[in-house]
Amino acid sequence: MILPFLGRTALSFLSYLGQLLLLVNETARALVVSPIRWRLFFRQLVEVGFRSQLVVVVTGGFTGAVFAAQTYFQFNRIGMESAVGAVVAVSMFRELGPVLTGLMVAGRVGAAIAAELGTMKVTEQIDALRALGVHPIDYLVVPRALALMISMPILVAECCGLGILAGYFVGTKVLGISDAYYLNTMIKFTGARDIKMALTKGFVFGLLVVFIACHQGLNAKEGAVGVGRAPTEAVVIGSLSILIVNFFLSFALNIFYPGGV
């Protein structure tokens, strides 16, 4: 009973992965063989990048603030409260910033992409594009993929920046850690390697969100149920894959951008 089940699950996972890679491959090919539609790209940049800023910044700010407070409560007891700045900054860059931004974007942008493309699929708009000689990948996927590839690192940077700023404010102004100590340890223990890690992760998570969402949308099943399922699955699969890929990415990137002083 259990073995066939496992086999089927593994098979469907592999087939899903294959479909996703095919989409990535077709998108990469589209970038080469057909001109980029800049107007659509800029519209998506505003839609997925510019308009996501508030959500991401609020997330980053409150996470940084609460993280600083919790770290202070623990470190205070062993007289290490000056390390709070470093802990907040490093954690924001290396883990919290990219992952939280990824999850928020998966929820906001991934769902919207899957819903829009899914609706277009079942109302024959995608067939209409094809019938008018326009490749749906060129018209729909490429502008969204480019927009997310560019916006995600920027959004991650904003999230981390606000988190660190909020942490600094809470640590020094609310909890009374000395300004100089806070900044000093923070600068000492954070480096370009941490920022690079944040940006790299952001870029990868952007790819995950956009391709998973486009795949769900382009393969939406007929009917209200089918269209409704596309965004839900885009968010669930997108979020889970961000968390899982993040784990492996942390190890892999630690080779290139090792932590520590």
């Binding site: 609706t119 109302t123 024959e124 067939d127 019938a131």
Partner: peptide, 16 residues
Amino acid sequence: IRKKVGILFQSGALFD
């Protein structure tokens, strides 16, 4: 081919 042959969809399939 699609420049030569146009199709009207049953649903209209307008870009919404």
